[in-house]
Design a protein around this nucleic acid. Structure first.
Lengths: 263, 263
DNA sequence: CGCGGTGTTGATCGTAATCAACGGCTGTGG
DNA sequence: CCACAGCCGTTGATTACGATCAACACCGCG
């Protein structure tokens, strides 16, 4: 009934993974046993796929396909049924909730290699939207649920990510409830600086990154207005805590100095 | 080495469960197989123990003991190792986080029959404190972790509670980030009215309850000051949305009318 | 060139924080 | 028994932080 995994992993009509990815992990042993799509994927190491052996990866890959979306694409809607799960391979996904009158709050940000989706619930409690251009590894709902039932280690790994997300949500509740606008913006920059660019995790002091969110997104994340976010960014720049070369290009020369602004 | 479970369930030095509890569940079949401490416990139905059969309950009860604490008692400290888990049997436990300068935020409230504790982490990310007088069913760390490893259904149940807590935390992030003081206080009262008193869940419109939190706690939960909470409560009372007979005694004549104030 | 979208900056306003006074309750000790 | 301290909660006066309203700069694009 099913053809070779590779055919499905690159499912018809979906743009192929870029060539450079093919070359990245040549050093891996038994690469030939690992589905092509998985070879460059962070989830295989730090994400949920890290608990799977190559045979299990192959089995899972029969239910996966690469999906690329550009910034702004709605991936799941609040209150709507979810037909598939996904792993974030590249980019940032924002999870939002809205009040009837349109006030919006970002309640979570998912980076590679985070798992995306609410297990064991008929429909999504949040709206998921691509904050930047993203690559997702889509997993069919039934396929993953079957695999979870068979593989306790996988369930455990997902439990651990869920607990981590809960910790992060609670950390953010402190920021939303008790910090000033200045501290909120500093906290946001610190979060991004420490979550993005996971390759360079040495003790290097300075970090440059491209903000994956617009000012409006940042405001929705922090419970502020666009104007206040802009003003606080200007203030941090004036005080040399950050440099802003282009609107989305932020440079943090001293991460520790930024952390001190987080309250 | 171990004596009968009943002896340990009522471990020496711990005050006994009150007599009335003994009579509550006479109608249960095979009550004689169920540990005495479990007979009146909500966790056995809606909580994590709902997935255990009576033999498993007995096995678990060898690692449990009833612990009573009065309001204000610190049950776990942020950043400190946790030596045991617990189920809330009665009362309310608040989970808090603090900033260096003392600003405090409540990041979660646990009601019966919630599970208490952070699995798979060496130490607690939050401070847990009895908000009201509470009864806990303490579970030894190693005992529960062994049981989880053996019982996939139990892990699943705990996963489901964790996911529910994550949903609740995200719901609360909207309240903290985007609601006005008036909406925050209304939302808090609505939360309490719908979470407390789980027995009377009929479509009755009116609800009376004793606030398990002080004004200071409410303020810490909502990211407000005591004064603002007090003013908003006075306003709701003046507008007949609630009645306050004593400081902790709240009466919500029309739950739907309260819900409309939540934004 | 004008246009829409995004971001910055300035002026003003309003909500909630802060500062302050006081009332009610409880427990303690003369 | 009353006096008083200490705590909690309410209410009033004032302040300040961030929202709102407004103008404009910048950029890509038809």
């Amino acid at each position: 009934m099913r053809t070779l995994f590779a055919t499905l992993a690159f499912g018809a009509g979906v743009s192929d993974i870029h060539d450079s990815a093919m070359d990245t992990n040549r050093k891996d042993i038994h690469n030939s046993d690992i589905p092509v799509l998985c070879r460059s994927c962070e989830a295989r190491h730090k994400g949920m796929c890290g608990v799977l052996d190559s045979a299990e990866l192959v089995a899972l890959s029969r239910h996966t396909r690469l999906a690329r979306h550009s910034a702004g694409k709605e991936l799941a809607a609040e209150g709507m049924p979810v037909e598939s799960y996904a792993n974030v391979m590249r980019g940032v996904v924002k999870l939002t909730k809205v009040l009837e009158d349109g006030r919006q709050q970002i309640v979570g940000l998912q980076f590679a290699p985070d798992f995306l989706g609410r297990l064991f619930a008929p429909d999504s409690a949040v709206t998921a939207e691509a904050a930047s251009d993203v690559d997702l590894c889509r997993l069919s709902k039934s396929g993953l649920e079957r695999l979870i039932a068979e593989n306790p280690k996988l369930e455990r790994r997902l439990m651990e990510q869920t607990l981590r997300e809960l910790d992060e949500a609670r950390e953010w509740m402190v920021t939303l409830g008790r910090k000033t606008a200045a501290e909120k913006v500093a906290s946001f920059l610190y979060l991004i600086a420490t979550h993005l660019d996971p390759s360079a995790d040495s003790e290097q002091k300075g970090r440059k990154f491209i903000l994956p969110l617009t000012r409006g997104d940042v405001a929705d994340f922090l419970g502020l207005t666009i104007e206040t976010v802009s003003r606080q960014l200007s203030r941090l720049r004036a005080e040399k805590v950050i440099a802003i070369s282009a609107v989305t290009q932020v440079d943090v020369p001293d991460l520790e100095r930024l952390r001190k602004r987080c309250g």
